[in-house]
């Protein structure tokens, strides 16, 4: 059964290995270069020496120079986000679907292995291999992103997705969802589409839909408007904290960035344009005019990073378990 799984998926396995190898070499070369510059420019020493409060002022110019130099490489951080999706869609989707579509399930399930054993070995090997590949990529990315994680932090996107076990969790989930989708649709192309849709739905809900931001209730800090626009929050935040949202607090208590400084009433009568352009208000006056009284900031403190990583990984693994259960149920019950 192990031989069969390898024989059926050896091309996909070798391609994944190849892609990882190429990526690895690229990361190695560029990473060494970055670390070299990080040291040489004095940025490393600077960041180690000064506390976070001085970050912006003292190390700022150095940081900006460093960031500008390696800006384009940040695009590479998209790779860890693509790999799980590609694996799930292109490896997971067709895994069971192709057997149904080509009717080879009637051949392989009539050899002396039971359907349960067939599925168990396949799942174990494919999900296991996916986890290992993701783990290897994770190790590479953590090392490679080192300088940037000191500058930009790792709690906020996109770094969060490749700075912890979440990457492995997403990969396993993508594969499991793909396999389940293939078992449901029993045709390769619909399986690919369904997997893509499911992945998108889950990731959207977690990242943009606010699920991740609320794994633990965010800390909300407010300070009065009167302190001025340049004023900062009463707590000292570092780059490692994850600032989710910031702005004014409106009458309903929501954080908003709506600042309407066109002056006068916002409702203009098209037939009677104002004869005299009104005197522009300064931003503070605008804010006060709109009824805002306080600034607000909600964030997740840095010490929650690992908790969040494990909560999210567990969520993905739970979804994977559900997908595997659905697959096992359908394979046992259904024929074509």
């Amino acid at each position: 059964m192990i031989w069969l799984t390898w024989r059926q998926h050896r091309i996909e396995g070798l391609i994944t290995l190849g892609v990882l190898a190429v990526l690895g070499v690229f990361l190695l070369i560029t990473g060494l270069n970055m670390y070299h510059d990080f040291q040489q420019s004095g940025l490393s020493a600077c960041l180690a020496h000064y506390t976070d409060g001085a970050l912006r002022t003292v190390c700022g110019p150095l940081a900006n120079a460093f960031g500008a130099q390696f800006q384009s490489l940040i695009l590479v951080s998209a790779a860890p986000l693509l790999l799980p999706a590609l694996l799930g869609v292109l490896v997971g989707g067709p895994l069971v679907a192709r057997e149904y579509q080509q009717r080879t399930h009637l051949l392989v399930w009539m050899q002396s292995v039971t359907r349960s054993r067939w599925l168990t070995v396949k799942l174990a090997l494919v999900l296991g291999a996916g986890a290992v590949a993701a783990g290897a990529l994770l190790a590479l990315m953590i090392w490679w992103y080192g300088p940037f994680s000191q500058l930009n932090g790792r709690f906020s996107p996109p770094a969060y997705d490749f700075e912890g076990p979440v990457l492995v969790g997403v990969t396993v989930m993508a594969l499991a969802l793909g396999i389940a989708a293939g078992t449901v649709t029993r045709r390769t192309v619909p399986a690919i589409l369904l997997t893509f849709a499911l992945l998108l739905a889950v990731r959207y809900t977690v990242e943009l839909g606010g699920l991740r931001a609320n794994f633990e209730p965010p800390i909300v800090v407010t300070w009065p408007l009167a302190q001025g626009l340049g004023s900062g929050p009463p707590v000292t935040l570092s780059m490692q904290d994850w600032v989710i949202d910031g702005g004014f607090i409106d009458a309903q208590g929501h954080i908003t960035n709506d600042l309407n400084c066109s002056g006068g009433s916002s409702v203009s009568n098209a037939q009677t344009p104002p004869a005299i352009p009104p005197a522009p208000l300064n931003p503070l006056q605008c804010a006060q005019a709109q009824g805002y009284h306080s600034f607000a900031l909600n964030y997740q403190p840095a010490d929650r990073f690992w908790t969040f990583q494990w909560i999210e990984t567990s969520l993905y693994l739970a979804i994977s378990a559900l997908a595997v259960a659905v697959t096992a149920f359908l394979v046992r019950r259904r024929l074509s």
Binding site: L4, R7, Q8, L106, L107, M110
Partner: peptide
């Protein structure tokens, strides 16, 4: 299962497997 054999309609096979591969499949799974 070990005592049964079934050839389904249109005799499905793994099209990208060589005949030798299929024999290996049989040997390993039976």
């Amino acid at each position: 299962l070990p005592r049964l054999s079934f050839v389904a309609q249109d005799h499905p096979l793994y099209k990208d497997f060589t005949v030798s591969d299929l024999l290996t499949l049989g040997r390993r799974l039976n």
